[in-house]
């Protein structure tokens, strides 16, 4: 906490880049997207339209969701032309495979 307004950086500038690893905005979610891999045609419209960059893509293929940052807006489900994505209550169990692949994707990013 700054003692005086005079000590605050001008205009509230934070002299550091935003660190998204410290704030996992996925916990704001009330509904989450669920992916039916069999119906997916890999058009990647969900990836284009996701406002949080929470659609994971591996080698040009849809690979699931980054649930740490997906806020559950549902744009992906709304935009999917083959109904391969649907929104389900947050409490509903997500197939382990999607979680594992999502995590692997993030860990892979970090190690690069």
């Amino acid at each position: 906490m700054f003692k005086s307004y005079k000590d605050l950086p001008l205009g509230g500038v934070i002299e550091a880049a935003p660190d998204r690893t410290k704030k996992k905005t996925g916990d704001w979610r009330e509904e989450k997207p669920l992916w039916d891999e069999a119906k997916c045609v890999n058009c990647l419209l969900c990836w284009v339209r996701c406002p949080e960059a929470a659609i994971l893509v591996e080698e040009g293929q849809m690979a699931g969701f980054d649930y740490d940052y997906c806020k559950g807006c549902g744009i992906c489900a709304h935009t999917c032309p083959t109904e391969a994505i649907k929104m389900v209550p947050e409490e509903e169990e997500v197939p382990e495979q999607a979680r594992v692949r999502a995590k692997a994707r993030r860990d892979g990013n970090k190690s690069k």
């Binding site: 307004y5 605050l8 950086p9 205009g11 509230g12 500038v13 934070i14 550091a16 880049a17 935003p18």
Partner: peptide, 28 residues
């Protein structure tokens, strides 16, 4: 003072200012 394109000195501009900071920033 804080050019956002200066990638060697990254900054976050226009952040949220809750009751702890908003008043002081207006005072500036």
């Amino acid at each position: 003072r804080y050019p956002l394109l200066d990638v060697d000195h990254p900054t976050t501009q226009g952040p949220f200012a809750l009751p702890e900071y908003y008043f002081e920033l207006k005072r500036q």
